[in-house]
Design a protein around this nucleic acid. Structure first.
Lengths: 192, 192, 192, 192
DNA sequence: AATGAATGAGACTTCATTCAT
DNA sequence: AATGAATGAAGTCTCATTCAT
């Protein structure tokens, strides 16, 4: 007699389950955000993805492999979100104020995104293998900015955004919006 | 007065050793730089400090405690070095070019310092307890810059230095010095 | 009818494949020789035989079953080779020098054969089920020798060959050929 | 009041325990004899030695290290026992009959010793690192025999003993004592 | 004040085997 | 007949911490 209950108490665990790999990657990012790379274990990720422990090393070639894929996805998604955000701007002036908003109110400031970014940077600082991800991410950001600004200005803005979001996040006191606006204006004011 | 047996072949481990605590902290930073916070263990630090394993939990109240002390020392030393560097400048113009040099050729770019900084940021992003260290560090940097620039300019410069050193380090391709100079000039040109 | 794509670049794994079972057994011996019985896993054998993992437990009733079949084949092949070698001799004298040659220069000494033999003996020492293989092998060797020597002499020679090849293999220094010749001569000299 | 019970039900596990290392090595040999090298795990050895699992890798540098030490001890003990046995002989004739007895009734034939020897040989066949143990063992056996026989005879006898004990053990039928006596006599009869 | 043997939890990983397709 | 994703048990090893000395 066929059991049709998708999740009976006896835990019949999905057998056929495409997207399992994808789910693991997403769960991995959740775990990293919550416990840090150093606290990310196969066990925790498996539990978060509702997947057996054995699936971890079946689908990924060890922890390093999983982390690489997870950060790859994160960087790609984040870059895409930034691009989408900027694409809604119709002029350099709008772009400038979008950047101020991004720095001061951006989702980045507090939680998940900051942490994931930092974890990625920390890994990339040590392992050149991950540096291709960060490099690609920077390229993407600058290309997005170059829709409104010249290459040099775009590179500066990119670094400025990086530094300011980071400082805002690591400061125990609130960051002054006027300072941010002034910075953007000095770097990209008028016709750059 | 001469110690009777400074280091006999059988290595009888120092018994009375007042700087033991200090040595452990320094060794801890070395280990972090080499293996990352996640790879830093009591065992490795003890070995690096030439200290018994039992000394670890005798002198420090667990790993978190040791890490906090280590990063405290690191941030303080780094801030002091930056201040010493800038104190040799006699004018805003000199200060500006010192900053360019700091970003492009600074020791930060490649090795130990970048890694330690990133490890600290990653921890601070998660644990508010460590955020006091980063906050104090930022305050110090800005105060150093305020010898030459107004507060707003100093804050912007501080963020810019942060962003650019980071991007330089995480990029697989070399960073353009002209861009750095342009950035400093736009933000702090003339009489700010 | 010819199979439409015997081995396309995408490696679509043979579907109909009658010698699959044989190939697995041969691959199993290769894996044993390379990694030992203890390092022999379904996965490794499947990969060596270019066969799917599922085929392992489909064709064989577990690892013990596969090992038994593999060693059966090995012992049979080895005994046949020995017999073929001795059959080329036309007199006891020739047989004696063939034995010396077998001990001193035989393929056994170094590689695959020694290892497989030892692995089989080790298993047989523990599991009586495999002892029928070793018993049959010994019977065959003695029967081969009995073409030239009486039964007692044959049994002694058989043991001597065993002991000397083993000692030669397990010694870090070369084995003295004169000693081997003397041994054969004492045991089987003249008209035994 | 101090608990003096050496092994209370609550399992207070010895804290201070010299000879622990020794006990582990002995337990390891027991486990090998019972389950084979391939069935020897840290868990089983720890349980057999009544020692915590963590002690395994604390005292030994991994399984390979433990195995090496265990077989080292086994070979040494076995060689010493053989020497003690032969030392009780007063003439070549006595030595010859001692050898016959050793082969036919020796403890080797059935259980623990045969298995341990085979396991050692199997490992040594693959790993040159262990071959120093087998080489040393053979040297010892021959030196023992050389008290009664010339070097060549001793080497032959050594190989003969090896081959005959092995064949006796691996045969499903009993080994004929007359054959053994004949062999020893042919090799070492009279004044060798 | 200092040591290092000892421990138990838990990390990663591999494996034989099952089972839906 | 054949596959390979999936699983849970078990393997080795590392670790922070305790504790008798």
């Amino acid at each position: 007699m066929a059991e049709s209950a998708p999740d009976s108490p006896a835990r019949p665990r999905r057998r056929h389950d495409p997207e399992r790999r994808d789910r693991i990657i997403d769960a991995c990012l959740d775990v990293i955000a919550e416990r840090g790379v150093s606290g990310t274990t196969h066990r925790l990720v498996a539990a978060a993805a509702d997947v057996s422990l054995g699936s971890m090393t079946y689908h990924f070639d060890g922890m390093a492999d999983l982390l690489r894929e997870a950060f790859e996805r994160f960087a790609r998604a984040f870059a895409a979100a930034f691009e989408a955000r900027m694409e809604r701007c119709d002029s350099p002036a709008e772009a400038r104020s979008a950047l101020v908003d991004h720095i001061v109110h951006g989702v980045f400031g507090t939680g998940r995104e900051l942490i994931l970014t930092q974890e990625l940077y920390t890994l990339a600082a040590r392992e050149p293998a991950l540096r291709s991800i960060t490099t690609r991410w920077m390229r993407s950001s600058r290309r997005t900015l170059e829709r409104f600004f010249d290459p040099t200005t775009s590179a500066i803005l990119d670094a400025l955004v990086e530094g300011m979001t980071l400082h805002r996040a690591l400061d125990t006191e609130p960051y002054d919006e006027g300072t941010v606006a002034a910075a953007i204006d000095r770097v990209a004011g008028d016709a750059r």
